[in-house]
C-alpha cells in the first residue's frame, strides 16, 4: 500500500454505514452471497471485541448451526437473532419486498430466484436492514408487483421484527413502522436530494436532520483493509480481491 491513504471506496462507506447500525447487536445473520452486509457484520464484530456472533448462512466455516437448514429459522422464531439483511428485486415505499419477479405471477416477465426465507425472517428478526446497491426507479418502485414479504402488518399479527432501514448506493433511509414510510436520513458523499428524488420511485419523507453519510476514518479504514478484510476474504474471496485487493490464502 502506498503511504498516501486511499480515500474510502464506495463499498467501504457502505460497510461502515451498515456496521454502525449493528452497534449493540448480539447475533447477526448474513447470507453467503451478501459481501457488503457480511463485511459490515465482521467489522461490527471487531468493534464488539468478539462479543457479537456472526452467522454466515451457506458458509461451511462461519456457520455454527448443527441442526440443518431449519435451525436458522427456529433460532429466529425464538428471538435468538437480532439483525439480518434482505434485498429485493423491487422494494416499495411501504418496505414491501419482491423476490419473485416483475409482471404478473406466475408467468413473470422477469423471474427472480424466489422468496427464500424472507416471508418469515422479516416478521421475526427485530432489525432487518434492507440493502440494495442499485438505487433506481426500476428497483425502488411505488408498489411491488409481488409481495414476497410485507413491510408492515396489522397490530393483531404477531410480529416482533421488521424493517429498520434501507441502505442503497446513494443514501440511507430509516423506516418508520408506525406510518409505514421511509425517511431520508443521510446522503452519501457526491449525491444530492434532487438526484435521489429522481431515482426513487416511491414517496418518502426527509429528515429535518439530514446529513451527509459519515465516511469511515483512517482507523476504521485500516481495520477494513487489515484484519476485517482478512476475515472477509475467507468468506467472500471474490469480493475481497476485487474491492479490497486482499487475496485469501491459497487463492492466486
Amino acid at each position: 500500500m502506498s503511504s498516501v491513504p486511499v480515500p474510502a471506496r464506495p463499498e467501504e462507506l457502505l460497510i461502515f454505514t451498515i456496521a454502525r447500525m449493528l452497534d449493540d447487536v448480539r447475533h447477526v445473520a448474513v447470507g453467503a452471497s451478501s459481501p457488503i452486509p457480511g463485511a459490515a457484520a465482521l467489522l461490527a464484530q471487531t468493534w464488539s471485541a468478539g462479543r457479537m456472533r456472526v452467522s454466515v448462512l451457506g458458509s461451511e466455516h462461519d456457520n455454527f448451526f448443527t441442526d440443518g437448514g431449519r435451525e436458522l429459522f427456529d433460532c429466529a422464531a425464538q428471538g435468538r437473532i437480532d439483525a439480518f439483511f434482505l434485498g429485493g428485486g423491487q422494494i416499495d415505499g411501504a418496505a414491501n419486498i419482491n423476490l419473485i419477479g416483475t409482471g404478473e405471477y406466475p408467468r413473470n416477465r422477469i423471474r427472480f430466484p424466489g422468496s427464500f426465507g424472507s416471508a418469515y425472517l422479516y416478521f421475526l428478526i427485530p432489525r432487518v436492514i434492507l440493502f440494495r446497491e442499485e438505487h433506481s426507479p426500476r428497483v425502488l418502485v411505488p408498489k411491488v408487483d409481488f409481495i414476497s414479504a410485507p413491510g408492515c402488518s396489522p397490530d393483531h399479527v404477531y410480529r416482533p421484527g421488521g424493517p429498520y432501514a434501507l441502505v442503497t448506493g446513494r443514501c440511507v433511509f430509516a423506516f418508520d413502522r408506525k406510518h409505514s414510510r421511509f425517511r431520508l436520513t443521510s446522503i452519501h458523499p457526491g449525491h444530492t436530494v434532487t438526484e435521489i428524488r429522481e431515482q426513487t420511485g416511491f414517496e418518502f419523507d426527509t429528515s429535518s436532520e439530514l446529513v451527509e453519510t459519515p465516511a469511515p476514518g483512517s482507523e476504521t479504514l485500516a481495520l477494513i483493509r487489515g484484519p476485517v478484510g482478512e476475515a472477509v476474504s475467507k468468506v467472500y474471496p471474490a469480493f475481497a480481491a476485487r474491492v479490497l485487493g486482499i487475496n485469501a490464502q491459497g487463492v492466486a
Binding site: 440443518g68 437448514g69 431449519r70 429459522f73 422464531a77 419473485i100 405471477y105 422468496s115 427464500f116 426465507g117 424472507s118 416471508a119 418469515y120 425472517l121 422479516y122 416478521f123 421475526l124 409481488f146 409481495i147 414476497s148 414479504a149 410485507p150 402488518s153 399479527v157 404477531y158 410480529r159
Partner: peptide, 28 residues
C-alpha cells in the same frame, strides 16, 4: 418460503397432518 418446506417435512417426520408457523401472513 424456506421454513414452510422445513416445517412441512417436520410434520411428515412426526406423522402429523400439518404444522403451524409464525410470520408469512400478508405475503402474496
Amino acid at each position: 418460503t424456506c421454513p414452510v418446506i422445513h416445517a412441512g417435512l417436520q410434520a411428515a417426520e412426526k406423522g402429523v397432518p400439518f404444522m403451524p408457523l409464525r410470520g408469512i401472513l400478508g405475503s402474496d
